[in-house]
Design a protein around this nucleic acid. Sequence first.
DNA 1: TCTGGGGTCCTAGGACCC
DNA 2: TCTGGGGTCCTAGGACCC
Length: 425
Amino acid sequence: MSSTQCTKKIALVDCNSFYVSCERLFNPKIRKKPVVVLSNNDGCIISRSNEAKALGIKMGEPYFKGKDIIIKNNVQVFSSNYSLYGDISRRVMRTLKRFNSDIEVYSIDEAFLDLSNFTDQEVEKVGKEIRATVLQWTGIPTSIGIAKTKTLSKVANHIAKKTQSGVASLIGIENIDPILEKVEINDVWGVGKQLTKFYQKNGIYNAKQLKNKSNTWIKKSSNVLSSRTAMELRGIPCINLETTTSKRKSCVVSRSFGKRVEKFQELREAVANYCLNASEKIRSESLVAKAITVFVRTSPFQRNFGYYSNSKTLDFPIATNNSIETVKAAMSILDSIFRNGYRYQKAGVMLTGLSNEEGKKNLFSTDKDEKINSLMRSIDNTNYRYGRSTLSLASAGVQKRWNMRRQYSSKIDTADFYCLPTIRA
DNA sequence: TCTGGGGTCCTAGGACCC
DNA sequence: TCTGGGGTCCTAGGACCC
């Protein structure tokens, strides 16, 4: 059997500056200009155009710290608009599925594709075709890296980002050591801050050096994940393509507040709202939760007011997705972890131990449960039709002074007819 | 003044059982 | 007085990803 037939060929398709590219779709005026998109609450810079990167604006930098450069260079700033990005993302993924229906949607802007069916010679051409098609059909520019393993396709993708064609393949290259030598250890997929520190202390500064370390040493001094990374750098696939979407195991809704919150009542409202969102989300996926965790905290960056952070978990007697029950549990947790005299910056709700709804019925199920379920269904339907929080619980409040800031929103809604761009002939 | 949000997996250590 | 050893399960915390 020739090597062409038995080696895997994995492509990683990554959208370039994804959130910025989405904003640019509907706003041609900002196409060649420096643009950034901010995180929730307009807190950090989480997407940058190449022009913005060239100005030295860093990924994840707090907005207020980058403001000087931004104003001086007339950088266009946008609050994040996740319903828009989610919608564009689905279009991109749908396009990719035309080339291979078995894709792994890895994140909102990335997907792995199995191109093993193509020959070594064809694969780069196919990559270019994928790139051109996505660009033509969705308007989103991508970079594509192709290699024998996922970890190596990440490496290839780094290289693709710097090339004119936007596509880079490591397939068919006899010795990739010279390439790996140029990849800094912290740029390797699976190597974060802590591992970088650890590897550097042990004389490992680039991908080639990690590749050549013995597996037993890596496993002993780190863990199995790290040895998998090293194996993948050697071209041996250890991380499978996850083409079937598995049910999630937890659901978190948490937000930083637009203004610091000090009043118990306001904190209660916020947590009740997060709880409603989380419950609705798991209901929409036919899941029930075994337990709920609530956490609150003050800003970790401004400790001059005193730092406080606490969380607590409650188990439900019977797994549930009923908002009335989750809110009640959340409120009782909050009662016990709230401390007076702090300026709260963030709170959140976590539903854990999720499982399928069908398993929920048991000896103790009653008619009352059925009534509550149908109530939840009609709340969800109404909110779907007339907008979120048309129907809510009294504890969720109406003022929402704690709501997040979104000062720079483009307000583009792909589901809204009036937001369609107009084309003048 | 102003520092995001949502996931997964692994490991160590404790509780518990026989 | 002497106080084993091995297994499982659960959880909290940490590290990583985008």
